[in-house]
């Protein structure tokens, strides 16, 4: 009796969110799943005709596409390099910021600024940072006697342009993560720290024994959403390289395409059937992300009270 009542109550709490999500999230999601089973689907015609059903045809097409392999490879690199670095750096910044008193507000504002920076300005700034002749990075490398590296200009390779893209991606992710960690740190009851102070616990121990465990839900949140977000990377590539998705002179075209870039190139393709390819790629991305998230949750289960 009690349990049924609490069940009902929980669903009431969830009702507003569920209602909106069903219409604007779940329904389009299932629609996308459905599209993967169609051949020659033409959504431009008012009656939305298609030629036949297929179970795996669209998936086969995506999986055998060289461009998709390239997209998968790039996405995996972005995910496994940018996420760990940006999570660790932003955690350190947040903890440092939380531990100071003077200029705290100033720093906090500065770390918020990427959020309100116009995308075009970000593009201009990174073009400047990575310029071969006068860019900041190459000037820095010059101090160590290194020759200028071509990151985003003519002559850039997949490797060098990927480095630039990763820096851009990490930069782009910091502001949000810092904000979340700061909010999380502020949620921690000061009493724990007061107690630690009384016991004269060393700082590193406070960090390991109090801060990190109590922050663990936020760390889990950031890690999971960052990985999911990085699997969906695309805007950073556009921001860095524009529509060609590669630095000039690098063939094949789209050398730095990501899975979402691949999906996007099919979404507004007017040719019949293109949308099903996009949907199939989206489902493949979904499965990869899901499996990875499960592994992540399973691994972290012991350490995080998630």
């Amino acid at each position: 009796m009690l349990e049924r009542e609490s069940n009902l109550k929980a669903w009431l709490y969830l009702a507003p969110a569920l209602l909106l999500l069903s219409v604007f999230t779940f329904y389009p999601l299932f629609n996308s799943f459905y599209l993967t089973f169609l051949v020659g689907y033409n959504y431009l015609k008012p009656d939305k005709i298609f030629e036949a059903y297929t179970l795996v045809g669209n998936f086969k097409e995506v999986l055998s596409d060289k461009l998709f392999h390239q997209a998968l490879k790039n996405t995996v690199v972005i995910v496994f390099v940018s996420v760990p670095i940006s999570v660790i750096v932003s955690l350190l910044i947040a903890v440092a910021l939380n531990g100071i008193k003077k200029l705290q507000g100033t720093f906090q504002t500065i770390f918020f600024l990427p959020y309100v920076t116009n995308a075009i300005a970000v593009g201009m700034a990174f073009a400047f940072i990575f310029n071969t002749n006068y860019g900041l990075v190459n000037q820095f490398l010059g101090w160590f006697g290194m020759d200028p590296v071509k990151f985003v200009t003519l002559g850039a390779t997949w490797g060098t342009s990927m480095i630039a893209l990763l820096v851009y991606t990490i930069w782009g992710g910091l502001a949000f993560k810092i904000m979340v960690f700061l909010a999380g740190l502020q949620n921690i009851d000061k009493q724990y720290y007061d107690a630690a102070k009384v016991d004269a616990t060393p700082r590193s121990r406070v960090l390991r024994r109090i801060t990190i465990p109590l922050l663990s839900p936020m760390i889990a949140y950031i890690t999971i959403t960052s990985f999911i977000g990085a699997f969906k990377a695309y805007r950073t590539v556009i921001g860095m390289f524009g529509a060609s998705l590669a630095p000039p002179g690098l063939l094949p075209k789209d050398s730095l395409i990501t899975i979402v870039g691949y999906i996007y190139s099919y979404i507004y393709d007017t040719a019949p059937g293109a949308i099903s390819i996009a949907a199939a790629a989206a489902v493949i991305l979904f499965v990869i992300t899901l499996v990875f998230t499960f592994i992540q949750m399973w691994v972290s289960k012991k350490r995080v009270h998630f």
């Binding site: 329904y27 299932f30 629609n31 799943f33 459905y34 089973f37 033409n42 005709i49 298609f50």
Partner: peptide, 15 residues
Amino acid sequence: SVVVLAGCATKTAPE
């Protein structure tokens, strides 16, 4: 099951 439901909602006609 929902995929099947969504399927019913879409009109079909062979080209």
